[in-house]
Design a protein around this nucleic acid. Structure first.
Ligand SMILES: NC(=O)c1ccc[n+]([C@@H]2O[C@H](COP(=O)([O-])OP(=O)(O)OC[C@H]3O[C@@H](n4cnc5c(N)ncnc54)[C@H](O)[C@@H]3O)[C@@H](O)[C@H]2O)c1
Ligand SMILES: NC(=O)c1ccc[n+]([C@@H]2O[C@H](COP(=O)([O-])OP(=O)(O)OC[C@H]3O[C@@H](n4cnc5c(N)ncnc54)[C@H](O)[C@@H]3O)[C@@H](O)[C@H]2O)c1
Lengths: 222, 222
DNA sequence: ACTAACATGTGAAATACTTCACAAGAAGTA
DNA sequence: TACTTCTTGTGAAGTATTTCACATGTTAGT
C-alpha cells in the first residue's frame, strides 16, 4: 500500500533520502544475487553503514513495503525503489565531450543497466567527429540543439573543458533538456526548471585531505 | 587571527561545511584570475549558489578572515582555505586499476594542481604492467603492500572492478594508507582510522531521474 | 568630523534531519 | 489458543544545520 500519491510524494523528500535510496537499490541488487527472499532494515542498514531506523524512515516516506516480524521482500522492494527513482525505464542520454573522462563513461556498462542509455556523442574535434565509439558515431557539436531534439535526449552528460561548458549548457537548455550531469569543475547557470548535478572529484579528495590534516571525526553512523 | 587551534578546530565541522570550502576555494581561484582583490560573502555566495550567511558562518568556524565593510581578501583567503583543507602541500597518491576511468584520472591535471600527485600506478593485467602512462610505469599489484610503503603513499584511488575492490583495499589498509577514494560501486569495509570516500556517479544520475519523475523541488538556496 | 552605505561575525531562532522508543502486526512453536 | 520472538511504521524527542538579524566595525564621500 503506497501512501504517496501519483505525481510524487506529499512532503519534500530530502536529497539525503534520495541518495540513500540509491544505496538501498544497490544493496538489494546484491541481496537478490545472494538469493535472499526478505531483508530486515537491520541487515540493510548494516550493509550500507546506516541505522535501521533511518532505513525504515526513508522507505516510509514512499509507502509501507515491509512485513512486521519478517522484513522487506527483496525483489519487490528493489522494484519499488526502481520505480521511485525512475530507473524502471530507459532514459535517453547524450554525452558531450568524448575525451578522457567522456570515453570512460561511454564504456561504462553500469549506466545502461540502470536505464541510462547513452545514444548520442558530441565533440568539436574534427578528428573525433565521425569516428566510432562503442557503435556510436561522434556527432559535430555544431548541430547540438537540433540533434538533441531530434534524438529526443532527456539527459545530458557534460564532459568538456570548464571554459566551454557554460556555452554548451546554454545550448542544451535551449534544446529543452531538463537534466544535466556535469563533470566540469565550474558552477553552471541553468534555469529553475532544469535539474543540474555536478560530479566533483576534487571535492572528495579535498575532504580526505582535510580529514587527515584535522583528524576529522566523520559521522560514522551505527 | 585564527580562532581554531593547531591540530584542528575545536568543534566538529560538518561535512557540508568542508565541501563548501572546496567550492569557495574554486571560486576564489577564479576571482584571483579576474583580478579581484577582495570579495564579499554576498558575491561568493552568488557564485556558488549559497547564502551569504552560510559563507560567513562556514568561514567563522576557522577564524575571522574578513574586513567589515570590505569583504575578504581573495588571495589571502584562498591560501587560508588551502591550509584548512590541507591542499597547501603535496599528497603522494597511488592509483589502482589503470582501466577506463583510471586512465582518465591519470591524465587529469587538476588533481596535481590541488596537491594530489599520482606517483604510482598498479594493475594486474600483464599487458599493462610495465607499460608507460604519462611517464609512470604500471606496477604489478602483486607487490602492492610493499610498494605502497616504499613509495610512502598517503592516498589511494581505487579504480578496479567492484568484485576485487575489497581484497585490494584490505592490502592498502595493511600498508598503512589512511585515505582512500573509491570508484567501485560497492561499500568497502575499512578500519575506523581510515578515511574512505566513494565516488558514485550512478547516485547523481539517479537523483536526476528521481527529480524528473517526481517533480522534485531541490533546495535552491538564495 | 559627520554621515551613509557596506559587510563581517555571531548568538538566537528557525528548519531540517536523524534517532528513539514503542504500539502493533506477523510468524513460529507448542 | 497462548506465548515468544521478530520487526515494521511512526509520532515524538533529540541533534544538526541553516538562516535571521543586528551590534559592530570599515570605507568613502562631502
Ligand atoms: N579526466 C578526468 O579524470 C576528469 C576528472 C574530473 C573532471 N574532469 C573534467 O571533465 C572535463 C573533461 O575532462 P577530460 O580529461 O576528459 O578532458 P579532455 O580534453 O580529454 O576531453 C575534453 C573533450 O571535449 C572536447 N571539446 C572541447 N571543446 C569542445 C566544444 N566546444 N564542444 C564540444 N566538445 C569539445 C574535446 O575535443 C575533448 O574530446 C573537464 O572539464 C575536466 O575538468 C575530468
Ligand atoms: N568507466 C566509468 O566511467 C566508471 C564510472 C564510475 C565507476 N566506475 C567503476 O570504476 C571501476 C573501474 O571501471 P573501468 O570502467 O575503468 O573498468 P576497466 O575494466 O576498464 O578497468 C579496471 C582495471 O582494473 C584492473 N584490474 C582488474 N582486477 C585487478 C586486480 N585484482 N588488481 C589490480 N588491477 C585489477 C584491470 O586490469 C583494468 O585495468 C569499476 O569498479 C567501475 O564500476 C567506472
Amino acid at each position: 500500500m503506497q501512501s504517496s500519491q501519483a505525481g510524487g510524494p506529499k512532503k519534500r523528500i530530502s536529497e539525503s533520502t534520495i541518495h540513500r535510496l540509491s544505496l538501498y537499490y544497490r544493496a538489494l541488487s546484491l541481496l537478490e544475487k545472494e538469493n535472499y527472499e526478505t531483508v530486515s532494515s537491520k541487515e540493510l542498514a548494516k550493509r550500507e553503514k546506516l541505522t535501521p531506523a533511518q532505513v525504515r524512515k526513508d522507505l516510509s516516506f514512499f509507502g509501507s513495503f515491509g512485513t512486521r516480524g519478517l522484513g522487506y521482500p527483496v525483489t519487490e522492494l528493489k522494484k519499488r525503489i526502481a520505480t521511485i527513482l525512475g530507473i524502471d525505464r530507459v532514459w535517453r542520454v547524450a554525452l558531450i565531450g568524448v575525451g578522457n573522462i567522456g570515453s570512460a563513461l561511454v564504456s561504462y556498462k553500469e549506466f545502461a543497466k540502470q536505464g541510462f542509455h547513452i545514444v548520442k556523442l558530441f565533440d568539436n574535434d574534427q578528428r573525433k567527429i565521425g569516428s566510432n565509439h562503442k557503435g556510436m558515431i561522434v556527432s559535430d557539436i555544431a548541430n547540438l540543439e537540433q540533434e538533441l531534439t531530434e534524438a529526443r535526449i532527456e539527459v545530458v552528460v557534460v564532459a568538456v573543458p570548464a571554459t566551454v561548458a557554460q556555452y554548451i549548457v546554454d545550448d542544451v537548455v535551449r534544446a529543452g533538456v531538463k537534466a544535466i550531469l556535469n563533470f566540469a569543475p565550474i558552477n553552471l547557470r541553468v534555469p529553475e526548471d532544469v535539474y543540474l548535478r555536478n560530479e566533483n572529484m576534487a571535492m572528495e579528495l579535498e575532504y580526505l585531505s582535510f580529514a587527515m590534516v584535522n583528524n576529522h571525526t566523520p559521522k560514522r553512523v551505527k
